[in-house]
C-alpha cells in the first residue's frame, strides 16, 4: 500500500545513493550499486501500477456503488463512489479513480457515524453490508498482490531460511 510508485523509485534510488553507496568498499561492489540505480531510473520511466491491480479495485468499488444504489431508503446525502461505465486507459487515471472511490467510501463511513438518526435501520444494515463487502474484497486483493514479508531479514541484516 505504498502510495506513489514514482516516489517509491525515487526513495529507493536516494537510499542507495546516500545511505548505502558511501559505506560500500571496492570498485566492483560500488559499480554494482550504480548499476542498480541506473536500472531503477530506467524502470521509473516505463513502469506503472498494472491495470489488473487497479481494475479489480475499481470493479469492487463499482459493485459497492450498485449495492448502495439499490438501497431504496438510504438518504440521498449519503456519500458514495461514482464510477464511469468505461474505465480510463492510463494507470494514473485508474489510480486517481481508485483514490476518489476510497475517499467516497471513507466519507460514507464517517457520514454514517454522524447521521445515525436519519438512516432507517434496514438501510443502515444494508449499507453496512455493502461497506464490509467492499473492504473485504479490497483487503483480500491487497494481500494477494503482496510479497512474503522479510522483517526478520530486515531486523537481523542477514538471509533467513
Amino acid at each position: 500500500m505504498n502510495h506513489s510508485l514514482e516516489s517509491l523509485f525515487d526513495g529507493i534510488i536516494e537510499t542507495l545513493r546516500i545511505e548505502i553507496l558511501p559505506k560500500l568498499d571496492g570498485e566492483f561492489v560500488r559499480g554494482q550499486a550504480f548499476g542498480a540505480i541506473y536500472a531503477l531510473k530506467s524502470l521509473k520511466l516505463r513502469v506503472s501500477w498494472s491495470p489488473e491491480f487497479l481494475v479489480e479495485q475499481l470493479d469492487a468499488l463499482k459493485a459497492c456503488a450498485e449495492q448502495l444504489a439499490a438501497i431504496k431508503n438510504l438518504p440521498a446525502a449519503a456519500p458514495r463512489p461514482i464510477l464511469p461505465d468505461n474505465y480510463p486507459h492510463t494507470a494514473q487515471q485508474l489510480e486517481q479513480l481508485r483514490n476518489d472511490g476510497d475517499d467516497a467510501m471513507s466519507a460514507l463511513i464517517v457520514w454514517r457515524g454522524t447521521h445515525k438518526a436519519e438512516i432507517p435501520a434496514d438501510a443502515a444494515a444494508a449499507a453496512n453490508h455493502a461497506i464490509k463487502t467492499y473492504i473485504h474484497r479490497q483487503l483480500k486483493h491487497e494481500l494477494k498482490t503482496s510479497a512474503k514479508p522479510m522483517f526478520a531479514e530486515i531486523s537481523l541484516g542477514k538471509e533467513i531460511g
Partner: peptide, 19 residues
Amino acid sequence: FERNHFHDMRMPAMGTQIA
C-alpha cells in the same frame, strides 16, 4: 519515505504491512 525523504528502506517495507 515518500514525502520527507527519510532514506530508510524499512519505511516502505512497513508500508506493505498496512493491508
